[in-house]
Design a protein around this nucleic acid. Structure first.
Lengths: 254, 254
DNA sequence: CGTATGCTTGAATCACGTCAACTGATGTGG
DNA sequence: CCACATCAGTTGACGTGATTCAAGCATACG
């Protein structure tokens, strides 16, 4: 939402860390940094020596090939996401990381992550788990692109963001802030901006949701989820545990 | 290729483990099991208490939704792949795992993995890294589905398998065994079997490669790679001039 | 002002899916 | 042995979903 947050909060995907381990991590030295909109933070192939935890704002991860105009967003990151934690074991990225809005980030040096993980192997497993949920989301994106058509694809993407935004405390029943242009949506969903426009019109005229001024207004969540065939299990949020239950009522169960 | 292998070999993706850590892992108690073709090994949502290392054969990981016929393969596993290592920290899978050919697997109980990782945190990081490369492959699949059209998609998929098969010692210059039906290829590349057939015809008539009897015969690798726009960096292996080399010497540490 | 950027729409084109028919290989039971 | 079923592959005709090209309108900004 706004990127003015400077304090670390256990929210969104970070809820997958047990509270005591989150204490441990947030006590570790880190730097708070802000970046502007539409800035490249890391580029594919560069060595990376710190990982970024999102406190506020929106950023994307992109794969593209030089000389071809087929850029594809492979992840959209919001508050609570550990954007490139996978660079910690890997040492470099296979994709670019760019801001979309201005963002506030906490930078964790891999050196200090290594130390804290050696002190607490359990926290190591927790961080590992975070990167694996990231992987599950990637699998879902592959599924979405490969097996769904444009309308369902968009609906499914919006359902994912709706749920994730609510998990990080920035979503309401009526909708959520999604500061993407139709061109960004096209990058995310593997279609052209023109077709995004038409698909959004269809969803609007269907009474599902309206997208305008960087906000998604959800009018009929059940209908949207049904068009998407949405099944949130890939996010590994437990309907019964840790206070997520209420999020699953009202149309999110297939 | 054949699934008669009963000994653990450091090959394929396992080359990302430094030799001494591989010794450590392969010394750990494990069970060797065989499964037949087209068997379901694990299903989405079930608790999983062991992870599978592939010694021989081919299997796939699939996402599908009940009531809809939109099944999508999200990974194709060959010898040297630690198929569902991510189930170790996660405890369950977000997708199904099914054999395609008969396979030979080494089963590692999560309990013993936990022990060995506690004894050697470095091995833990190495295993973590394996799952992250798996994630990078998923990102590439999302990119492939979202940003490429059918011909490039198929070419790119074949390039990936060509390289991975050579990394695990089962590929030659002329081609490699790929025991998939055109229907399997359709699941993998997000198109219909009919269109797979046409795309394969085009590749054949272009002089790129021929697919028949479960084998890919590669006639013009450069042309195939160029149609795909293939960039193998997502596999985290370093190419040298002659194809893709033994990039793994020295390991892949950050 | 003028220019850039995002959104919207129409018309033409093309990529891909759908339906359907036919082939050849393999397998089964009478 | 044949009659029959099954399944992978192949091709044609046709329909549709999505891209492409183009134009027109807003709003924001120097």
């Amino acid at each position: 939402m706004d990127a003015s947050q400077t304090e670390l909060r256990r929210t969104g995907m970070l809820l997958h860390l047990p509270p005591d381990r989150w204490e441990m991590l947030s006590a570790v030295p880190h730097e708070i940094r802000r970046f502007g909109a539409r800035e490249a933070i890391s580029l594919k192939g560069e060595p990376v020596e710190r990982s970024l935890l999102m406190l506020g704002g929106t950023m994307g991860r992109y794969i593209s090939r030089p000389g071809r105009d087929d850029r594809q967003m492979v992840a959209l990151q919001i508050a609570g996401d550990f954007v490139d934690l996978h660079a910690f074991p890997l040492g470099m990225l296979d994709h670019d990381v760019r801001t979309i809005t201005p963002v506030t980030l906490a930078l964790f040096e891999h050196r200090v992550l290594r130390e804290v993980v050696e002190r607490s192997p359990d926290l190591g497993i927790d961080l590992w788990r975070l990167t694996l949920i990231d992987g599950a989301i990637h699998r879902h994106w592959a599924f979405r692109m490969g097996a769904m058509r444009a309308l369902s694809r968009m609906a499914d993407f919006l359902c994912e963001m709706d749920l994730r935004m609510r998990l990080c405390g920035e979503g309401e029943d009526r909708g959520f802030v999604l500061p993407l242009t139709q061109s960004d949506l096209a990058d995310a969903c593997g279609m052209t901006p023109v077709h995004v426009n038409r698909v959004l019109r269809d969803l609007r005229e269907d009474g599902c949701c309206t997208l305008s001024a960087g906000r998604v207004a959800i009018h009929d969540r059940a209908r949207l989820a049904s068009i998407a065939g949405f099944d949130p299990s890939f996010l590994f949020v437990e309907p019964d545990g840790s206070g997520y239950r209420s999020l699953f009522e009202g149309g999110f169960r297939s």
